[in-house]
């Protein structure tokens, strides 16, 4: 799963099968960890290869990979919950803002 990047000694990459993880989850995880890593995406038909470069050379690569994977899994679950609850959320917001006198 992990291999050294030719251009940057400290970079490593992790491949994610698109059948299991959404690209959105990967992007969110990269955003959430921008204080620790920068991530480039290399997308093929079945996989996304995330090329990860630590922001600091003091970070342990194995730990970063583990934390990134956890972020991805968490975001995948969040995206699934958001999709399932979107209509209910809209209904709650609709009720919340109904009859407020702000509708004009």
């Amino acid at each position: 799963m992990q291999s050294p990047d030719a251009d940057k000694a400290t970079s490593f990459d992790v491949a994610f099968p698109l059948a299991v993880y959404s690209l959105d989850a990967l992007k969110r995880a990269a955003y959430a960890m921008m204080h620790r890593i920068s991530v480039k995406f290399d997308i093929s038909n079945e996989h996304v290869r995330c090329i990860i470069t630590p922001v600091s050379d003091k970070e342990d690569a194995a730990r970063l990979e583990r934390d990134f994977l956890r972020e991805v899994i968490d975001h995948d679950l969040r995206i699934s919950i958001e999709a399932q609850t979107e209509q209910t959320r809209t209904a709650i917001l609709g009720l919340t803002f109904s009859r407020t006198g702000l509708q004009g």
Binding site: R70, I81, E86, T88, I92
Partner: peptide, 10 residues
Amino acid sequence: YRLLPFRFTQ
């Protein structure tokens, strides 16, 4: 049951 909107954080 059905899920209601919620968010989670470690």
